[in-house]
């Protein structure tokens, strides 16, 4: 890296010489550089605005279409704002989705699997960050390495396991939910995230707690956990979003039993493949219903979400 720096410094030395030109041309140069600055600023913002529109457009189109009447959707020239606003699309979407059941299932699975994950993550992260034991680094490296293996390989065997336990039988609703929850009670990435956070907590606190006669267990729940609340919030939100978006595994477990569908399964099953423009209004209303809670979480917990997601790349 150091070599590189010097190389570029040498590269650009011509510019230094160019700058040392005559006095009269300096003003002219300043004006030119001001103009190029403005031009580059315009280009920069124009680019960002165009890309921003491309990013926003699907959201906009989803909302607009969800409010349109069937007749308007089927116009050859599409309109960018509904001529008549049709709220009934939403009533239809809620009814057809069987939204109450989907919401109940998703929240049940999401919250229980999130709480379970938080407990296992806190315990493991504490052991890796604070406790001293033989093979600690080895086990931790091993766990990180296992993140490389694609989940598909486990999904097949896990499906075999849970169906051998009878958890996939359509009569066994409790088993169905257990199958959607228990395998997700552990996340190596979150252990890694929380361990980093625990390590930042100064050792003096630990020693002080020891002097006060606190046990490791008390120290963890009374000092570490409150101090790590931001990271725990991040984990909570990301995990909840994961449950809201999960499709593959619940789809395998539910295998067509709509009583145990999660929200995404319900959405896909209700509005199946057929391309029916008459249905676009209700279909887009349903996608709005699925998307809005996520966007609300994003608005309220933006900081937590972006920090958690961004952390993944720091190792490089």
């Amino acid at each position: 890296m150091r070599d590189e720096k010097f190389k570029y410094a040498a590269d650009t030395s011509d510019y230094v010489l160019a700058l040392a030109g005559s006095e009269s041309s300096t003003e002219k140069k300043q004006r030119i550089s001001k103009i190029t600055h403005i031009i580059s600023l315009v280009i920069t913002y124009a680019f960002l605005i165009i890309m921003g529109i491309i990013i926003i457009f699907p959201f906009y189109w989803m909302i607009i279409t969800s409010l349109k009447e069937g007749e308007e959707i089927k116009q050859l020239q599409q309109t960018f704002f509904p001529q008549v606003i049709r709220w009934e699309n939403y009533t239809e979407a809620f009814n057809r989705l069987n939204f109450g059941v989907l919401l109940r299932n998703t929240l049940l699975v999401g919250i229980i699997s999130t709480l379970g994950t938080l407990i296992t993550t806190i315990l493991a992260a504490y052991a890796f960050a604070r406790l001293n034991f033989k093979g600690r680094d080895l086990v931790f490296t091993f766990l990180l390495g296992s993140m490389m293996i694609p989940g598909e390989m486990m999904v097949i065997s896990n499906y075999i396991s849970v169906s051998r336990l009878g958890w996939t039988a359509s009569s066994n609703i409790v088993g169905n939910f257990a199958a959607m929850i228990v395998p997700f009670w552990v996340s190596i990435f979150y252990i890694y995230l929380l361990r980093q956070n625990f390590k930042q907590i100064p050792n003096e606190l630990y020693l002080a707690a020891k002097v006060d006669g606190k046990s490791d267990w008390e120290f963890l729940w009374k000092v570490m956990v409150p101090l790590a609340m931001p990271t725990l919030t991040t984990i909570f939100i990301l995990k909840l979003m994961g449950a809201w978006n999960s499709y593959v595994w619940p789809n395998l477990i539910a295998s067509g039993n709509s009583n145990v569908y999660l929200i995404t399964n319900g959405l896909r099953e209700t509005f199946s493949t057929a391309d029916n423009p008459n249905d676009y209004g209700a279909q887009m209303a349903a996608t709005v219903v699925v998307t809005v809670p996520l966007l609300l979480l994003f608005i309220f917990f933006r900081k937590y979400i972006m920090r958690g997601v961004g952390r993944a790349g720091i190792k490089g």
Partner: peptide, 19 residues
């Protein structure tokens, strides 16, 4: 704005794109 597509449901937005 640029982060918004991250907090979406792949199936739901896929349906929006198909429309």
């Amino acid at each position: 704005v640029f982060f918004m597509p991250y907090v979406t449901n792949a199936i739901a937005i896929g349906m929006v794109f198909s429309v």
